[in-house]
Design a binder for these strands. Structure first.
Lengths: 158, 158
DNA sequence: AAGACACGTAACCTATCTTGTTACAGATCG
DNA sequence: CGATCTGTAACAAGATAGGTTACGTGTCTT
């Protein structure tokens, strides 16, 4: 494993749900993300618990958005997936006895806290709708040809 | 594995080398860090390649500082240990075909780049001597009683 | 009521990366 | 020559995201 990509993946799928699907199954979403339906359910469970999506069991079930993308920030999703660690570096022990080590970790921790505050502030002020708007500027037709095959499957089966 | 602690560890040991050792063996340093001599040599090799420390082989050998702590920044050490990844989150693939995914990763990447720039700027402007000064403010006597046993061993054997 | 469909979840494996450990070769000093 | 150290290679351990299989449960269609 390299880096935690759950935030990126969830943003990706939420935009597609808003644009192309009224309701999508875990299987459909998993093909879109290039992964497995169980992984999708596992990750989306957090979003459901926070009320950003709904899931329905049984025949004709699947996932759907529970609110508009302009009502969901990146911070919301980050929290919904369980606030995974942001940084890959840090101290070697949590509470070092050595005072030199404490001074090192304090200084390092200050810098990390500043960077984290900046990052979370960006997450807080950007909605998923903002990202969708960025996409529209790149591709004004509002089409994503990459997942077209999946769209076709979905249209054919419904 | 949890988080990369090499930066923290190297800062820690460099301050001790400046304060308590003219020359320290990997074994001595490893006890200080609570790790293994091979791990020490492995990590310090980068610092040696960048000219921040010197190593001498053979009897009476070991490690010593090659310049003053006010001449070494946190960024220097970060680079000397190989610029490990700073963030634990990121996109799922490097070059996604889907334009929605590209828009997501671009927005996320902007926030991460901002945070990274801030973090590296802090690293660039803080010297290890600054951290040592912080330590002096915490413990004016200039003593670190935690590694006292190691200091004693070192004094006894030299 | 039966069966297909889809989520919910546990259990286990895989990949990746830092760290830990063992083993050994080479250099240096007494 | 022998003790002491660094320099490395090789491999195991630990942690975590992600992938996979299996099975239970709810729900709609026929």
């Amino acid at each position: 494993m390299r880096r935690d990509s759950r935030l990126s993946r969830m943003l990706h799928v939420l935009i597609h749900m808003d644009r192309h699907y009224k309701r999508a199954t875990s299987e459909t979403i998993s093909k879109m993300l290039g992964t497995n339906a169980v992984v999708v359910r596992r990750t989306m469970a957090g979003l459901r618990d926070f009320g950003y999506v709904r899931s329905e069991q049984g025949h004709g079930g699947g996932w759907e958005l529970a609110r508009g993308l302009d009502q969901i920030t990146l911070l919301d999703i980050y929290e919904a997936i369980g606030k995974p660690p942001l940084f890959a570096i840090g101290p070697s022990v949590d509470q070092p006895e050595c005072l030199v080590e404490q001074a090192v970790d304090a200084k390092l921790g200050d810098a990390l806290k500043e960077a984290e505050a900046l990052l979370l502030e960006r997450f807080r002020t950007v909605t998923i709708a903002d990202i969708a708007a960025d996409f529209d500027r790149r591709m004004p037709e509002g089409q994503c040809n990459i997942h077209g095959n999946i769209h076709a499957e979905q249209s054919a089966s419904s």
